[in-house]
């Protein structure tokens, strides 16, 4: 698989060529809000260099709000229509590499048999992922501490390394070849620059728990759960912005003569997430809810699928309104409750 160079001034032609073959999905600027993944129209100028915080790519693959079924009851007859989206060849560009790995976690949840999710599958199975490694690492990233990032490479179709005036495009799957068609070959200097950037990504923010098998270290009884539960205001931001959190609710809405059954985001941080009709709630306090989110990512998902549910994208670190820092929590868990300083 031959790597290529994409000069940044050639991006319009590159996008035009891709869009003639695929539906291209990439982060687009929004006014006063983080960039969001959108299907591109001709002339659009997406953010491909990963330099900005963006809404996670799950928002495209698993929309925040999605109508699953439309039910019409007229004249004594009931008809159900499945609103499964169109299955068409797509390319997602500008996906932070940790977010691309988070899509792997979503794939395990939504594509594994026997219950494949047809809505997710229609958007995902025919979609190539082109990851990006920005020139500057974000302070909140701790990817290399959660997993061996080398193992992430084969899970995407190509990786674009931002080398300033150009991208180094590393092709990591066979079908990824179709993306780089017609691009220039890299020089020795390009390869060295790419390797340097990869090394910076790989070694960025290696925290004390990096070598620990967290799924063996997270314990049911640990004083840290009580501490983060005491701080948490249960806003749910960490799961809404998380690239791998995918829990959802299903509700009915009556729209004139039809009923729309939709799914929308939900989070284990909300009390009614597990509240049963008769009043019993197995996670009725914030402590078990705080524990659930971290145990799910670092232990349960590993037990279920052999993947780690957190890829160190740092969104929850940057955005938590009460500064619950997942990195600090993990340090605490692994250091026998000794607080560890975390670089900011």
């Amino acid at each position: 698989m031959a790597d290529k160079i994409l000069a940044k001034d050639k991006i319009p032609e590159f996008l035009q060529r891709l869009m003639s073959k695929f539906t291209v999905v990439a982060p687009m600027e929004r006014k006063d809000a983080p960039a969001e993944f959108k299907e591109l129209s001709p002339g659009d100028k997406p953010i491909l260099d990963g330099s900005r915080m963006m809404m996670p790519p799950k928002d495209y693959l698993l929309p925040r709000y999605e109508v699953l079924l439309r039910v019409r009851q007229t004249g004594g007859e009931t008809k159900i229509e499945s609103m499964i989206p169109e299955d068409k060849p797509r390319v997602m560009l500008g996906v932070w590499l940790p977010d691309a790995q988070a899509i792997q976690v979503l794939d395990r949840v939504f594509l594994e048999e026997p219950f494949k999710d047809p809505y997710y599958a229609a958007r995902r199975e025919n979609t190539m992922i082109v990851a990006v490694i920005p020139a500057e690492m974000r302070w909140s990233w701790f990817c290399g501490s959660t997993d061996d990032v080398e193992t992430w490479k084969p899970n995407v179709d190509a990786i674009m390394y931002d080398l300033g005036d150009r991208f180094y495009v590393e092709v990591t799957s066979e079908r990824g070849e179709s993306i780089v068609e017609g691009l220039a070959d890299p020089t020795e200097e390009d390869i060295a620059a790419k390797n340097g950037l990869w090394e910076r990504f790989k070694t960025h923010n290696i925290l004390p728990f990096a070598d620990e098998k967290l799924y063996n270290r997270l314990e049911w009884d640990n004083s840290v759960w009580e501490e983060i539960a005491a701080k948490c205001v249960a806003c749910g931001m960490c799961s809404y912005m998380c690239p791998s959190c995918s829990c959802f609710d299903i509700q009915d809405e009556v729209c004139g003569t039809c009923v729309e059954r939709y799914r929308c985001r939900d989070t284990c941080q909300f009390e009614d997430f597990t509240l049963m009709g008769a009043g019993h709630n197995p996670r009725s306090e914030q402590l078990p809810r705080s524990r659930q989110r971290l145990m799910h990512k670092f232990k349960y998902q590993h037990e279920q699928f052999g993947v780690v549910g957190c890829t160190g994208c740092g969104r929850c670190v940057e955005l938590c309104p009460v500064n619950v820092d997942i990195r600090e929590v993990l340090c605490r868990v692994c250091a026998g409750n000794q607080p560890e300083p975390v670089s900011k």
């Binding site: 939504f110 959802f248 609710d249 284990c268 597990t274 197995p282 349960y300 998902q301």
Partner: peptide, 24 residues
């Protein structure tokens, strides 16, 4: 066992006890 469920197929994430889903 009884738990609150939405999807019934191990996706929506609320009926877990540890790494087991009551629904599947």
């Amino acid at each position: 066992l009884e738990m609150k469920m939405k999807c019934g197929i191990g996706k929506c994430g609320r009926c877990n006890i540890g790494s087991k889903f009551v629904c599947i």
